[in-house]
Design a protein around this nucleic acid. Sequence first.
DNA 1: AAGTTGACCCCGA
DNA 2: TTCGGGGCCAACT
Length: 111
Amino acid sequence: MPSDFYTDVWDLVRLIPEGRVTSYGAIAKYLGSARSSRMVGWAMNASHSAPEPVPAHRVVNRIGMLSGKAHFPDPDEMQRRLEAEGVVVENDRVVDFDLLCWNPMTELMLE
DNA sequence: AAGTTGACCCCGA
DNA sequence: TTCGGGGCCAACT
């Protein structure tokens, strides 16, 4: 049984709209642990055993780099899924990441 | 039980 | 601007 922190991360990641991406830091911050962005990585690492699928491909590091692509069952799938959603990926990096960045605080605050 | 590692981030040189 | 080091905290050895 995964800890609550993991499920929180997963839930949040599932809220990311198609064609948008976010960063580990933003997630960590939203969950109250601004400095624990590494734990978000661990949560992603455990996302394989998540009860429901987690769109981990929409989570990248602060500069929009696909840092976790190597950890997917099929690394190329991460980029493919992003491009399928309209996100342009070039050289393992999200183009216009600044525009596509989905900030949980801002977006969920507007609700 | 203790040390190392890591899908990160920030800051100073 | 790029580079190195410190911090974070759970998982792994």
